[in-house]
Write a protein that binds this DNA or RNA. Structure first.
Lengths: 125, 125
DNA sequence: TCCTGTCACTTGCTTTTTGCAAGTCACATA
DNA sequence: TATGTGACTTGCAAAAAGCAAGTGACAGGA
């Protein structure tokens, strides 16, 4: 809805700052995690254990789409229904998530990696 | 100030969710970045280009300290002054930041990695 | 002694973002 | 006709962020 060029470098040219401008909140990377785990539909994201508020979910999906991290496709036409998929840009976030999993494994006792029910090439554990 | 055990697993046992509970906002990892780059003092963090509000900075340093990611030490006693340092737990965040830098390098055109003026073993580029 | 400055914050207040519950709309099924 | 499902939207209270200004301990200089 906005031209994407003007949104960039809101804060600085630092790569970390730019990643945080896109993903620096409590929910966005959890939606990405769900996509990596194989979830594709709004209702599936909404059902995840963390309990994302539905308005926040709708907002995050919109932002991820505008950022080119996911694509929204209709998978049914009669009752119009959508599904979301990671783009290559989105799949390239896997190493970030993996680094987080590694850190938590080492420093947050008791965490449990979720089983995945669809596969991307990288392992995420 | 609080017992740290009760704060954990606010949302789920997912490692990603737990990392986001600690670092899931626009500022915390920027402070960690500055620490990795060699900054140690409150005033130095406050001067970074992104312009973190001072109240937010004070809050983030407190949280990072409570999480065991940084330690606060007095480096002067006559005018009482403090400096902050990453613990091992904090230094272990470097791979997460590196993964972010790699993603931004590939997907956000024009980002520039900051030069570092003090060194940890990992490269961060 | 008085004045100015630095460092490390804190306070007050406005704006923005979250979180929660409920509502909507297009269809499907019984 | 009545109920249900999927994908959202709306309204509103509560929490967090952003901004400017203030504070307190001390240092150095006139």
């Amino acid at each position: 809805m906005n031209q994407s060029a003007t949104i960039e470098f809101e804060r600085s040219h630092c790569p970390v700052a730019n990643v945080l401008d896109l993903f620096g909140d409590k929910w966005t990377l959890l939606v990405v995690r769900d996509l990596i785990l194989g979830k594709t539909r709004y209702g599936e994201f909404a059902q995840s254990v963390e309990g994302i508020p539905t308005n926040v979910l709708a907002d995050r999906l919109k932002r991820l789409e505008m950022a080119g991290v996911v694509v929204k496709k209709a998978y049914s036409g009669k009752p119009l229904r959508y599904q979301y998929e990671l783009t290559e840009k989105g799949k390239d976030l896997v190493p970030i998530l993996e680094a987080m999993v590694a850190w938590a494994d080492k420093h947050v006792p008791g965490v449990k990696v979720f089983p995945r029910y669809s596969g991307y090439n990288s392992s995420l554990e």
